[in-house]
């Protein structure tokens, strides 16, 4: 259930994101979802790719600062109130969210969650029978 997310340090300079995407594209790695955290000096690209280990190796070879972060992918029905219900459970279980972003496929909204303790978060979500996406399924999208 743990999903490896690729995190890349990006300088605040034009063309950095373009370089990352073309390196990954040339290597035949597909991106499923991504988000960027930006500050005044730098950005952090967080991306779900088809082959995280391979992507990390290639980016490292190209002198990028990269690491793999454990995240969870929660599947929500694409309807109003679904996210609120899921977040209420997390609130009641006192799971602290560091950041999250979402993408949708067909009828489902998928939410990538980064919490302080990933295993603990998975356990609590499963206890409440929330649907989680398997890493193998997500990488294939």
């Amino acid at each position: 259930m743990i999903i490896k997310q690729l995190s890349v340090f990006l300088e605040n300079k034009t063309g950095r994101l373009s370089e990352v995407s073309s390196i990954l594209g040339d290597a035949g790695i597909n991106m499923t979802a991504f988000s960027i955290a930006d500050t005044s000096d730098f950005g952090i690209l967080r991306v779900i790719v088809s082959e995280p280990e391979k992507a990390m190796k290639i980016l490292k070879k190209n002198d990028f600062s990269v690491n793999l972060t454990d995240v969870v992918c929660l599947i929500c029905p694409n309807e109003s109130g679904a996210l609120a219900r899921a977040l209420k459970i997390l609130k009641e279980e006192e799971v602290q969210i560091e950041y999250m972003y979402a993408f949708s496929i067909d009828k489902a909204a998928n939410i990538i969650l980064r919490t302080a303790d990933t295993n603990d978060c998975i356990e609590k979500l499963q206890k409440h029978e929330l649907e989680l996406m398997k890493a193998s399924e997500l990488y294939k999208l």
């Binding site: 997310q5 995190s7 340090f9 955290a37 500050t39 730098f42 952090i44 967080r46 490292k60 600062s65 990269v66 690491n67 972060t69 560091e98 980064r114």
Partner: peptide, 11 residues
Amino acid sequence: EQFFSDEVKVL
């Protein structure tokens, strides 16, 4: 490289 963190607050 080993001190790069995914979290903005750490950086």
